[in-house]
Design a binder for these strands. Sequence first.
DNA 1: TCGATCCTGTAG
DNA 2: CTACAGGATCGA
Length: 272
Amino acid sequence: MPELPEVEAVRRRLQRDAVGARIVHSDVRRAGTIAPQEVNAFRASIEGARIIDARRRAKHLFLPLDNGVTLHMHLRMTGNVYVLPDCRFPPLRARLLFTLEDGRALTFDDPRCLGRVHAVATDDLAASLPPLGPEPLDGTFSLKTFVDIARKSQMPAKLFLMDQSKIAGLGNIYAAEALYEARIHPAAPTAALSTVRLGRLYSAIRQVLEVAIPCCERAYAKPGHFAEADEYPMAVYGREGLPCPRCRTLVARMAQGGRSTYFCPRCQRGVL
DNA sequence: TCGATCCTGTAG
DNA sequence: CTACAGGATCGA
């Protein structure tokens, strides 16, 4: 279940397990997973092709094939992708099953069925993506870029961080954790934040994500392949009523954009 | 910019 | 039973 660190961990696993493999058969067990694409066309465009790379942009995963088609995957809330050792024993929640030449299988697993997989011409891939802001871990993502974007938006900081068209890859967990690290109130409009605070937020975003990626890799390495960020030392997310690690004040929860925001009411104060 | 919606599972 | 879940899109 994916924010940038989880998706990156999945990408690395696919790089190791799936790149180089040839897809000999595909089983669309739930048509909604590839909607609005049509099952026969989807299958025809990928069967027989070899996976030549595993890439990521924001929370999107891409498996380019050697026939000019790319499998574009989005895990949404509960999706997971991994290689099974034996295609004869697919997991219960496999929505898509790709049999590989050597008898293994690539599985798209998704209990809630919110995830999507599409077959897209590789040349058209960039144009088919929704608007995405800069990659926070990209070397070209500078503080100046971040400040420029943040100063243009009146959105509350938490919603700003979760808006993929502003900064790509953060979700409910790491947005909350980054704001905590930067000691910024989730409701503070980014345009009103001081340069010092924006600098702290910029650093916190990168730090939180960089720490989280190896945590996710460790979690995925456990038996069962289940995607949990349970190795990451959460300071506030999901910890309502528990003490803040810094000041012992009890972590609070508020609603923003229909989702839960966790924060420390003492450490994360003020708008300036 | 908010709320409803897509789906299913799990916890209380 | 209700509330909630790491995401995103759509229409009002």
